[in-house]
Design a protein around this nucleic acid. Structure first.
Lengths: 225, 225
DNA sequence: CTGCATCACATTGTCGACAATTACAAAACA
DNA sequence: TGTTTTGTAATTGTCGACAATGTGATGCAG
C-alpha cells in the first residue's frame, strides 16, 4: 500500500529509501543493529550521497538514530517506546476524527462506508488472510486522517509515524486477531463522523487505538522482547 | 535560547542549519522565495553536501518545501496554515500537560513555579522588553513538554514544530501584548499540574494556546498577509 | 594483571566535478 | 497573435576521492 501523500520515487534516493524502510520494518535489518554506509552503498549499488539522503529521511520517521561522527543505528523496540508512540497516536488520530467530522464531504464519508462493507465481505471470504486485514485497517485510518484536511497532521501520521507503528506491528507478529472487533469499531467511528459528532468520533478512535495498543503490549510482554 | 534536546553543532551542516533557520524565521530569507543551493553554498562558504544535509532538516521542521529535480522554496505563511498548526499545537501541548501532571517530579514542578516568579518580577522591572517575555514563554512551555517524558512528543514540539511557530510569531511582530495575562495562565497551568490534575492542565493549556492563536490571527488579518 | 597511552584502521563528513533533469527563452508554425 | 517546439543555460542529483573524526587493538607503565 502506498500513501497518497507520496510522489512516486523519481530519484535514486527515493527508491533506496523505500527498500531500506521495508527491510527495517520487516526486521531484515535487525532492530538495534548498526548501519554501515559503505556496506549499504555496496548492497544497493549506489554512492553514499543518495544513501545519506535516504538515511536523513529514515531518521525523520524514527526508524534510525544518528550520532554525529559516529554513525546510525536501527531503533530498538521497547515497551516504553510503544506506550509513548501510542499515547501520541491516540491523541493525534482522535484529533483527526474531530476534524474529519467537520471537514469531510458527504461523498467522502459515503466512500469510506462503502469501503468498509467491501473489506468486511472480502474478509469473511478470505478468513485469516492477514494482509488484506492490515491493508484494510491502514486504508480506513488513512481516509479519516486525510479527511481532517490538516496538512501538518496528515504529514505527521502518514509519513513520520506510519512506519514505526508498522514496525511494532510487523515485528511482533500482530496480524491475526482483533479482526471482526476492529471492523465494528471502524463502523462506529465513521458513523459518528457521518453524524458530524466529532466528540464521539474522537472518543471512539482513542478507544480503538488504545485497544490495539494493549493488544500489542500483551504480545510484547509474553515474548519478552 | 537553545533547546535542551539539541547537541552543540559539531559539524558544518549543524552550524549552517542554525544560521539558515534564523535567517528564515526572521524573514531575512523571505517567505515563499526560492532557495538556490549554489547561492547559499557561496554565501555560507561551504560545499553543497553539508548544505543539502541542512536543507533536509529544514524540510523536517516545515521551514522549506522541496520538489525533486526542481528545488526548494521557503514556506509561505497563511491563515489556513496558522490554524492547522495551532490546532495541532493545542492538542499536543494539552497532551504534554496531561502527561506532565503524571510524570513530573515535585522538584521539577517547584522549579517551574520558581521560574515563573522570577520571570514575573523581571518582567515588571523591564516593562515592555519583549525578548525576555518570549524567552520566558518559550522556557515555560519547554519545561512542561520535557515534563511529559514522552520522547516522540518532545522531539515533535521542540524540534519539528518550534521553528515554524516562531516564524509566525516573529514575522507578524507578535512580541508585545498578552504579557500579564500569559503569566497568569502559566501559573494556573503549573498549579493544576502540581495538583496532579491532568484534565484541568490539559484544558487550561488548550485555552492558553487558543488565545495565542486568535491573537496572532487578528494581526494576520489586519495586515492582510 | 590492570589501566592508560599510542597507533593504525575504519567510518563519517566534506569537497569538486560530472550527469540528468528542468526551466526559460527564442524561434517556427498555425 | 497565440501556441508549440526546440535549444540553451542553470539547477539538482549523483559520483569518487580526500580530510576529519571516532574506534579498537597493541604495547607499555604501574
Amino acid at each position: 500500500m502506498q500513501s497518497p501523500t507520496w510522489k512516486d520515487p523519481v530519484t535514486a534516493a527515493d527508491r533506496v529509501l523505500l527498500e531500506i524502510q521495508r527491510a527495517i520494518v520487516e526486521g531484515q535489518i535487525p532492530a538495534g543493529s548498526k548501519i554501515s554506509e559503505p556496506e549499504l552503498a555496496r548492497r544497493f549499488d549506489l554512492s553514499r550521497a543518495p544513501l545519506r539522503e535516504a538515511l536523513a529521511r529514515l531518521e525523520r520517521c524514527h526508524l534510525i538514530e544518528r550520532i554525529p561522527n559516529s554513525g546510525a543505528r536501527v531503533v530498538k523496540l521497547s515497551v516504553a517506546g510503544l506506550v509513548s508512540l501510542y499515547q501520541l497516536r491516540e491523541t493525534l488520530e482522535g484529533l483527526a476524527c474531530r476534524l474529519a467530522a467537520e471537514h469531510m464531504t458527504d461523498q467522502e464519508i459515503a466512500e469510506v462506508q462503502q469501503l468498509l462493507d467491501q473489506h468486511l465481505s472480502s474478509q469473511r471470504v478470505r478468513e485469516g488472510e492477514s494482509y488484506y486485514q492490515e491493508a484494510g485497517d491502514v486504508d480506513f485510518h488513512y481516509r479519516v486522517i486525510l479527511g481532517s484536511k490538516n496538512p501538518y497532521l496528515i504529514n505527521l501520521l502518514c509519513d513520520e509515524l506510519y512506519f514505526i507503528v508498522r514496525m511494532y506491528r510487523v515485528q511482533l507478529g500482530m496480524n491475526g486477531p482483533r479482526v471482526s472487533r476492529a471492523f465494528d469499531e471502524h463502523k462506529a467511528i465513521i458513523n459518528a463522523i457521518a453524524n458530524r459528532d466529532g466528540e464521539l468520533a474522537d472518543l471512539l478512535m482513542r478507544r480503538h487505538i488504545g485497544a490495539s495498543r494493549r493488544n500489542i503490549e500483551s504480545h510484547f510482554k509474553q515474548q519478552g522482547n
